[in-house]
Amino acid sequence: MIGGRVENNINITRYKEQGDSEFNNLSRNQYFILPSFSVKKSLNSKSNIRFAASKTITRPILIEYMPITYINPDNENIIGNKDLKNSENYNLDLKYEIFPSNKELFAVNLFAKKIDNAIERGYTASGNSNGVAITFFNAENAVLAGAEVEGIMNLSRISESLNKWSLGANATFMYSKVDRSAEQLEQEKPVNFSESLKDRKLQGAAPWAVNADLKYEYKNGQNLQCLRVKNIYSRNFGLGSHLRKTISPTGFCVQHPDYQKLESEIWSTEFTQQHLQTRTRRRRIHSFGCKNRYSYRF
């Protein structure tokens, strides 16, 4: 299948800096041509191979490009960069999938991505009490490549009494590298350091991520009900500069009970609770949260 989309992005942002009597305007009028291509080949009745290529864009969010100062709950100052550009993403995916039964799946996905003007967080000198503020930059480009393995197994393979239970798992391993802009190299370089900085990974691109879930599913008349417990663990990459100490890679674990009921084709109810654990090199932090969500589809 060959497709494409032409976007005309008109964005007008009005803001006031402290002490301003009049609003300032940030205006953008941009056109994007976003082609896509995908093909699917059925190898037999239970397995397929898929290939997809596409171009997408990632727009900066308000806090990243509006040039006013925010103070976050950690008492950090954040200043947006009004010159921030959209990221342009070129994506490739090759996937093999096999369905041992109508409730089971095994899939391997190879993927690659090139990102022009990737958006990353950085630091800049500031007149606030900390002497430094968080801001955002466009990198020259970034490349990512990796593999994803996914499986869903129905537990009736163990015992027929468990035919309403299924176990799922997913693992992703990813390589990333970013080509930093001149602004980024300047703010990341230590004072009195004259050599070239080492290559580094793209911020926020976890080199690996693993998640698993146990699901119980049954039908009550015409209604489908599902209870799922998820467990996700990942590791992300952070950054420091000569203005701020390096943020070490951190992992997080999410325990995620989930209940969903499909009342009909247009009505569903969902209850979710989330328990987040974060670990750093120096200390272990536990944060507990509960998120209840009820969703209705019309």
Rank of each mutant, 00 (worst) to 15 (best):
H242V: 06
A205C: 11
V178W: 00
E263G: 05
A206V: 02
R228D: 04
S241N: 09
P190W: 04
T172G: 12
E265T: 11
D213Y: 01
S181G: 07
L214N: 04
D213M: 03
L243Q: 10
V191N: 06
R228M: 03
K245W: 13
A171Q: 15
C226E: 03
L239W: 11
A212Q: 08
A205T: 03
P249W: 05
W267S: 15
G221T: 08
S176D: 02
K189I: 05
E195G: 14
T250N: 09
P257V: 04
L239C: 14
Q225N: 06
A206D: 07
R180V: 11
E195N: 03
Y259M: 03
E263M: 10
K177M: 15
L239A: 04
H256D: 03
I232Y: 03
N231C: 14
S264C: 09
S194I: 11
S248A: 15
I247D: 01
D258C: 14
D213P: 01
S181H: 04
L243G: 08
L227Y: 12
E183A: 09
F237Q: 04
I232T: 09
D258P: 15
L214T: 03
D199S: 03
M174E: 12
A169K: 10
K177R: 15
Y233V: 09
L185D: 03
V254G: 00
E195R: 15
E183G: 02
H256C: 09
Y233D: 15
K201Q: 07
K189C: 05
S264L: 15
S234A: 12
N236I: 09
D258I: 14
K245V: 11
R228G: 08
L185F: 06
N211Q: 14
A212P: 00
L185M: 08
Q187V: 13
P207I: 04
V191W: 08
